[in-house]
Amino acid sequence: MTIPSTTLDLLLLLRGSEPEGLGRADQVSYQIETAILMGILAEGDRLPTESALAAELGISPITLRQSLASLRSKGLIETSRGRSGGSVVRRQIDLSDSELRNKLRETSTEALRDLGDMGAAIASMSARLAADRADAQNVQHLEELVRRHREAADERLRRRIDSRFHVAVSIAAQSSRLTAAQLQLRAELMTIWWGQPGPDDGATVAAEQHQAIVDAIRKRDAEGAASAAELHSRAETEYLIAQHLSLTMLPGEGA
């Protein structure tokens, strides 16, 4: 099916998260790849027509065609011609365990702490504002994401829903800048290792913390929502740093 405009909005907000020094076509490829990695774009999603998408992204159709060609060559999208033609997302990106592990080993404690500080600032303010501004539909959506996160069958899916949940809190805060910042932060976190696959205590704790954030938002308890979100962010950061420390200290593995 054709992606809804909210999905397109999220895609647009990813602009600015690209590594420096990319050409415009590569920037757009990066945005779309990140959206696929985060599950904003899922398998089977149909991208808008080339002219519509180029206009939304603010690039020329030629530049867009270059981006799409590079995504096609990676097997991420499939394009068909004709009246009902267009590009469809073909597969989900999953970084391999070793790619994720290397990234986490190379990211210093200081960088992780800095990322975590920023994450806590965005999450707590988003939750605080969401408590004042979220409507019934926002809350229902958050509840749904908490449930899907808890029931996720595998770690990869759980990670994607986790990202969606945090972005949804910022959306419920009705703040486009906080949403953009949250998206970009989550995109970065998705490229870092998140521990051994499979359910463990960490997932249960995270699910309870998500529930606490939504409960406070539903009760319009701004203070409670902010502190629940901050607590959750800090726990995430400590978890990541703990993984980084043990990877660094681990003998062998070409460190």
């Binding site: 200081e110 660094t248 200290m249």
Partner: peptide
């Protein structure tokens, strides 16, 4: 000297959690 460069040698020399 960035802290990140010092961290690796600190952790590997220490070797205990």
């Amino acid at each position: 000297l960035p802290l990140s460069n010092l961290e690796g040698s600190f952790l590997r020399a220490l070797g205990i959690m």
